[in-house]
């Protein structure tokens, strides 16, 4: 049984106008029919560009946004749009690590009390101070710094604080929303190693969101690519055999730290269209080098088993755009 099963998940945000009397003039199609499963103990990487809906998807799963339609099943239980009270036990199992090591820690509170937050909120009995110091030790922080404020820590140390807070309730699933993209390269590797060690030790499942394709490739068992609210492609060995033209373009655009690497960038035309009025048919068709008439008319379905993709004219292995 998969740990998480999302079926046809849709999240639209209304676009309001007017100051006194608000009226809805449109919908942002942030997540538009996504089906994903997370298996116990795996890391599912989720990549995509700004506005593709990956963060919204994560927040729906974390119960931070009510979903517009669709279903989320967690550990066999339907948790779609649960009431606050019914959601409480689920929150113990699902934790989140945020992108911004500065923004995700309250600057006016001491680190010890920030890490103790989950224990206090869920009324976990026991010696909280000891529990917090054990957590700090586990994530590589000095437990004596219990009484310090976030501003006294560097970016990497703050992200460790965020990890300790997410770990406090021994959750099953941790949603990592760009956990290392604000960090320097040398520190980034420290945090990625820490996440890996914790996964092995506690049998955690990760939903790992990032825009850095090298990082995602390193940590993930399977990788899903999102474009304008939809899954374009999902596979374990995505980088070796990308089928979707968008995945190909994304991979070719990634700057690799190797001067002699073969560089044949596929430069896409234009920008990502607005999610308020997404294009007809395949959402990638206005920028796709392979687009034909059919692509503008008919939306491709996500097909395949272990390697899923949604494209009428996929790039065949060994072929090119």
């Amino acid at each position: 049984m998969p740990l998480v099963e999302m079926t046809d998940l849709v999240k639209h945000f209304p676009v309001n106008e007017g100051t006194l009397l608000k009226r809805t003039v449109g919908q942002v199609h942030a997540v538009d029919g996504v089906s994903l499963t997370l298996r116990q103990g795996e890391t599912l990487g989720l990549v995509g560009e700004t506005g593709c809906g990956k963060s919204t998807l994560a927040r729906c799963l974390a119960g931070l946004h009510p979903v517009t339609s669709g279903r989320i099943v967690f550990a066999g239980r339907d948790i779609t749009n649960l009431s606050r009270k019914a959601m409480r036990p689920v929150r113990r199992e699902v934790q989140m690590i945020f992108q911004d090591p500065y923004g995700s820690l309250n600057p006016r509170r001491r680190v010890g009390s920030i890490i103790a937050d989950p224990l206090v909120i869920h009324k976990i009995p026991g010696d909280r101070r000891k529990a917090v110091q054990d957590l700090m030790e586990r994530v590589g922080l000095n437990p004596e710094h219990y009484n310090r404020f976030p501003a006294e820590f560097s970016g990497g140390q703050r992200q460790r604080i965020g990890v300790a807070r997410a770990l406090a309730l021994r959750p099953k699933l941790i949603i990592c929303d760009e956990p290392v993209s604000a960090l320097d390269v040398s520190i980034q590797a420290q945090i990625l190693n820490l996440l890996k060690d914790l996964q092995d030790e506690f049998g955690l499942t990760y939903l790992f969101i990032a825009h850095d394709l090298q990082v995602v490739r390193h940590v993930s068992d399977r990788i899903a690519v999102m474009y304008l609210g939809k899954i374009a492609e999902l596979a374990p060995d995505l980088y070796e055999h990308p089928l979707h033209p968008y995945t190909n373009a994304l991979l070719s655009a990634t700057a690799v730290a190797d001067p002699d690497a073969r560089r044949r960038r596929i430069i896409l035309r234009g920008d990502v269209p607005s999610p308020i009025a997404p294009p007809s048919g395949c959402r990638f068709h206005p920028r796709c080098p392979k687009a034909r008439e059919l692509c503008a008319q008919q939306e491709p379905r996500l097909e395949g088993n272990s390697h899923q993709f949604s494209c009428h004219f996929p790039v065949r292995p060994g072929g090119s755009l």
Binding site: A62, L64, R92, Q95, M96, Q99, S104, D117, I121, R165
Partner: peptide, 12 residues
């Protein structure tokens, strides 16, 4: 801010 979102995700 993200720290408020963090508190929400914890069920505060």
């Amino acid at each position: 801010r993200e720290y408020v979102e963090a508190a929400r995700s914890l069920g505060a």
